[in-house]
Design a protein around this nucleic acid. Sequence first.
DNA 1: CATGAATGAGCCTTCATTCAT
DNA 2: TATGAATGAAGGCTCATTCAT
Lengths: 206, 206, 206, 206
Amino acid sequence: MTDNTLSSRQKQALQTREKIYESAEELFIENDFESVTVDQIVKKAGVAKGSFYVHFASKDEVIVLLINDYVEKVDTDYKSFLDSLAEDMPADEKFLALVEKIAEVLTENIGKENMRLLYRVQLEKKLNVSSVISYDRDLYKMFLQVIEEDFESLAPHSSLSAENVARQFVTVYRGLVFDWCVRTRELDLKTEALDLYEMLLKGLNE
Amino acid sequence: MTDNTLSSRQKQALQTREKIYESAEELFIENDFESVTVDQIVKKAGVAKGSFYVHFASKDEVIVLLINDYVEKVDTDYKSFLDSLAEDMPADEKFLALVEKIAEVLTENIGKENMRLLYRVQLEKKLNVSSVISYDRDLYKMFLQVIEEDFESLAPHSSLSAENVARQFVTVYRGLVFDWCVRTRELDLKTEALDLYEMLLKGLNE
Amino acid sequence: MTDNTLSSRQKQALQTREKIYESAEELFIENDFESVTVDQIVKKAGVAKGSFYVHFASKDEVIVLLINDYVEKVDTDYKSFLDSLAEDMPADEKFLALVEKIAEVLTENIGKENMRLLYRVQLEKKLNVSSVISYDRDLYKMFLQVIEEDFESLAPHSSLSAENVARQFVTVYRGLVFDWCVRTRELDLKTEALDLYEMLLKGLNE
Amino acid sequence: MTDNTLSSRQKQALQTREKIYESAEELFIENDFESVTVDQIVKKAGVAKGSFYVHFASKDEVIVLLINDYVEKVDTDYKSFLDSLAEDMPADEKFLALVEKIAEVLTENIGKENMRLLYRVQLEKKLNVSSVISYDRDLYKMFLQVIEEDFESLAPHSSLSAENVARQFVTVYRGLVFDWCVRTRELDLKTEALDLYEMLLKGLNE
DNA sequence: CATGAATGAGCCTTCATTCAT
DNA sequence: TATGAATGAAGGCTCATTCAT
């Protein structure tokens, strides 16, 4: 297996790359992309400046990679959860379970700082990170999937389409996360989310 | 200076200050705070670089002033509208009218770019702009005021408090605006907002 | 005359600009364009690095300006001399006088180092300095003018056109200057030039 | 090592060396010495960066070796041709034949780009390439050899020495080549050279 | 010999701020 | 007040060279 095994030099190199990547990550979470310097990154990583450019083409590349990684991680976690739910669970319960799960993942796995990073990216114009766009589409699809499974029982009298509802639910979720990111005093995302979506589901059902 | 009339010298100075301020405003709307330079500002204003520092202590000062102004303006517009509504209007109609008005003001008066500016500020850590915090409080107060006026009819069976509901409604509003700012394809804020809050009010009323 | 007089500040600024320009000039003569650094230039000029960019847009701009200046200076000197020659002087004497004058100007006014700079520019691809091209055209024109004035007596039997001859004489002149620039041991440009062109004129006349 | 056969290891090494050397050559022809990087060279050669320093002490060493090779190659070509000419050919015809041959070799064997490389080297100070100096001496010697063979018939009345004439003829040749290198529009070196030297020989003979 | 990760000095340029006029 | 030349600390990035594997 000469291909699959990494030589100690390759391992070393990968470690250096990781050190740089992680240092960058920590710094970007706390600060603007622009205000973080390559000097800071390499100092934190304990490597020479040149090493940064051995492993990455530019500062921007690291930013984009970072964001893509984040988005991917968020997505994967949600999807696997959704698949694990009992099929015969009522749609509204399923939906609330998903909402609850999202809150948990955000709070415990991703963290407030990382999400702030993600939201900041979307409000800045410079970086055109494809993954961030797909991220929203995926969240929308998950919501839509649950809603469509039993739209009749969820919204018996509604004039809105399932797509419409899904989109609005995504919007609400964004408001919740934005608030959560911005608030300095602690805010229990899960409780807030459940209260809000419960209200929405009721309104929808009416 | 015993009178409040300005000498021509003072008038001139005020004009210079305004020119700089407005140039800065236009540039900050279109670009990151960091990427806008003092050079750009004074060039657009048609004054010398030194003049900038005659009127402002630093670039950051201008940014903070700008944000404070924005927040104040947004607030004022909403409040005066709320006062103009008929007192005997039902609470839910009043609320939806306010929601509609907010959408109008945002779309027509403030503009998407300006709102993005405002939201960006909140996701960045550097600037500690007190006004932005108060801004949310004011929006919250308006919502609360309408809700409290007739909480009984709005939420006859709800276990949530009026404060709780008001807070959540603010959150939803934030989600809507965030989405509106971020979406590239046009999104009709007013329609979306009315649909969403109608659903919420129904859910609350149940 | 408020326009025409320079304030002491403007004079100061101009002096700084000159200091930088001249420092750059001296350094470029002795070294490659690429190997001369802005740091070297400002250190030699005794100003801060930023001052360089107050007066010049980039390092390349200075190089282009420098070359243009050189070419212009060379041209002007020759032309005014040519105009000063007696009209009834025989064509071959006139030509030799011009050749002699060129040698004098190059030796005494321009200097070997500067000419080397000029020739180097032409062998490098990067810089597209319009003036250098026009420079050759002008030298050619001067030669052509003298030759055409009395082509019959200069080349009674030649099958070559006056244009052809002028071009070749320019070529020879280039060879002379190139040699002069490259040789380390002193070479008397004037004597060499006169000997060579005398030979050429004789050959042409035959 | 008692024999001159190379082990396969040594052959491999020599090949690597050649690959690097040739890649460097191609790059230096098209670009400034300074702007060509070791990275570019090894990438083009398809070897690792370290291999470059196994075979060469520095980038500068490669440049010097390259230039020496060029000069040597140019020389050899001329010399062998000169030896092949009929002994009883008249001196002026012999000289023109040599001139023609030089033009041919330059145009067809060496190429404009390579010659520009060679001329550029001479106008730069950094590199003190001994061979370049010897190169001129050799060209001079060839010219001198032809001229001296029958100086009486070539320059019956001239006050100049054979050495003097040879030197001037080299100078003219340089002018021709310089022009040829610099001109963008095509210029037929051979025709130009023959015309010019014919003129010179006539003038010399007068 | 071959490799390529690691190094760090150095490059050009930007920019907020200062200050003499 | 108004000016704009002057400053110098960073900033992102390049690249010849070294060296452990």
